[in-house]
Simulated scan of single mutants.
Amino acid sequence: MTAAMRRWSSDRGLLLAIGLFVLFYGLYSAYHPRGGSADVIAQNVNETFTLALVAMAQTVPVLLGGLDLSVGALMTLVNCLASHLLTGTGWDLALGVVLCLATGVLAGFVNGALVVYGRIQPIIATLASGAVFIGIALFLRPTPGGAVDADLSWAASNTLFDVADTYGWWGGDLPGWFQAIQAIPVPVILAVLMVGLVWLPFKNSVTGRGCYAIGSSEQAAFMSGVAIDRSKLAAFTLSGFFAAAAGVYLALQTGSGNADTSMAGTYTLNSIAAVVVGGTSLFGGSGGAVASIVGVMVLRAISFCFRVVPEDSALAFLANPLLQPLFEGVILLAAVSIGAARVFSVKNRLHLFG
């Protein structure tokens, strides 16, 4: 097999996900009266970003060959904590964000310790810890409430132009270089920072490469001198960081905190679906956070399409809110099945990691 063919084989799932996104979001934009406008795109990005962060959190344990069932619960816990902390002066807000992210890091480390030192399967350890996180969230917010700083919340969910115009970053006309990027929603900038400053350095580090090696074959990784325990602890700790970032953004997006158990479960399940749709193998060892973000974009694009189906068209029945979960599930099952088909088409499973 040539290098080009191996590259195509390993990226086939991601390329399929990109194709699905272009298809579904193209349909959505074509039917939407203002499809493609900056306001609509900013709204869509806001609805996508929280799940994208949760999917990034899910990706790291999946690379090890496990699942983290606590990512949605941890997101909910940090969301409730942020509804208490994200208020006051600028320094208060900065300290609140740091404390929220530190909470996620600590929770992720605890998950890793349960797996590494407690010798508990990840799916069981995180199922138990997720219940604990939800319990703490309910203690913090028995009922929905809280008041996140309105200015910070607004700035985090709009375009760069809106933020610059409102706060008067430049007294007169905006400079030319800024005009070229002014339509970019702030969550896109945050996503780029998460990928560029957190994910890529981790992926290219010795510990990150160790996570891929463990997912490919833990026995072979051990024999090759990979620090198994360190890589697993780092993976779950990073997962906690991403889940905490999702909780912070959810608080900014909604302006409050809500210990919603069903929401936590939905985010967890959708994060697993996004990881698979993006082309990351549940066997571990291949894929990445960027692919999972694309998987989230596919899921959201599917749900967006149901909003704009013309009532007088032959597909009007798709707009029925009672039937939408059924259709989303069928489409998702088809996408996941196609993406996973390569697992059964290889004679040697090691080819999956080539």
Rank of each mutant, 00 (worst) to 15 (best):
S153L: 02
A3Y: 06
N79H: 13
A291S: 15
L299I: 11
M5Y: 00
L69E: 02
G354S: 13
V132P: 00
E311D: 14
P187D: 06
M223K: 10
S262C: 00
T50W: 08
T126E: 01
V22Y: 07
S224I: 11
M1Y: 01
M223V: 11
L174N: 06
A180M: 09
R307W: 00
T266M: 09
G104V: 05
Y249N: 07
L322T: 12
G13V: 03
A30Y: 12
S216W: 05
D229F: 01
N320E: 13
L74E: 12
L238C: 06
G196M: 10
T254A: 10
L69I: 10
N46Y: 06
V206C: 00
G171N: 12
G279N: 07
S262G: 04
V309H: 05
S313F: 04
G96M: 09
T254M: 10
I181H: 03
A334I: 15
R34D: 15
L318W: 03
H351G: 00
V206G: 00
A316F: 11
G287L: 05
M263D: 01
S37V: 11
L81C: 04
L69S: 05
H32K: 14
L322H: 12
V195L: 15
A42P: 06
A164T: 09
A180G: 01
A314P: 01
P325Y: 02
P61F: 12
P310G: 08
P321Y: 12
A82R: 02
V115T: 06
W154A: 13
L299G: 08
A274G: 09
V277I: 15
F353P: 02
S313N: 08
P33A: 12
G279T: 07
P144Q: 07
G215P: 10
S216N: 14
A164Y: 02
S271H: 02
P175W: 06
N46G: 15
